[in-house]
């Protein structure tokens, strides 16, 4: 049994989201092959956990996937591939999978499953993931702080083309207190994900 945390997006309370985190994953290649074979049993969004900056980062992609699925405007084939697609700033599904999706060498894994039908429950996801993922399940807190815990800021900056320390220019308006660097970065990324594909 894997440890699964259920999130509920405001305004989409009827569709819970099941999220599980794993470290020391040994069979990433197998999981990826199942995705490539489009095995319906493996309809998950398997993500490289080092590419997720904060809980909101993951939740916006999840929201967009769910929203587009509910309003029949998916760009990708399934809601779960839409989730992976929505994370990337460019409009290329393959690239999204290469950057944010599971690769053969992934050891830190995030598995997201949308409960689009009532038979997908926290228990069913937990049981299935517990069987197929060879890795150590990590508990996620209620607010999901752990979701950004493994973030590789350098890699994420590169994908979203954010230059270091916000911007190096002088005369930056800092008329308040010290800024929360990660919060600022998150805000820019959420904005970029929103205007993507327009």
């Amino acid at each position: 049994m894997a440890k699964v945390r259920t999130f509920r997006l405001p305004h989409y309370d009827a569709y819970p989201i099941q999220v599980a985190m794993f470290k020391d994953v040994k069979n990433a290649a197998f999981l990826r092959s199942q995705l490539l074979a489009a095995n319906p049993e493996f309809d998950y969004a398997f993500l490289d956990a080092t590419m997720i900056l904060t809980p909101q980062h993951l939740l916006l992609a999840t929201f967009q996937a769910l929203h587009n699925s509910r309003t029949s405007r998916l760009k990708a084939r399934t809601a779960h591939s839409e989730l992976v697609f929505r994370l990337h700033p460019n409009n290329n599904i393959g690239e999204s999978y290469r950057t944010f999706g599971i690769s053969d060498s992934t050891t830190r894994l995030l598995a997201v499953k949308l409960s689009l039908t009532p038979d997908v429950t926290s228990e069913s996801v937990s049981r299935h993931l517990g069987e197929v993922v060879e890795g150590e399940s990590v508990e996620i807190g209620e607010a999901g702080e752990e979701l950004g815990g493994w973030a590789d800021e350098g890699k994420i900056r590169k994908v979203y083309k954010l230059n270091g320390n916000g911007n190096g220019k002088t005369g930056v308006v800092k008329n308040g207190q010290a800024r929360d660097e990660r919060k600022e970065m998150e805000s820019v990324i959420l904005g970029m994900m929103t205007v993507k594909g327009s």
Partner: peptide, 14 residues
């Protein structure tokens, strides 16, 4: 936001 001007961030849109 990118340039560090203090404005509200964009959270989502449709």
């Amino acid at each position: 936001k990118k340039e560090g001007v203090s404005v509200p961030g964009v959270l989502g849109a449709d």
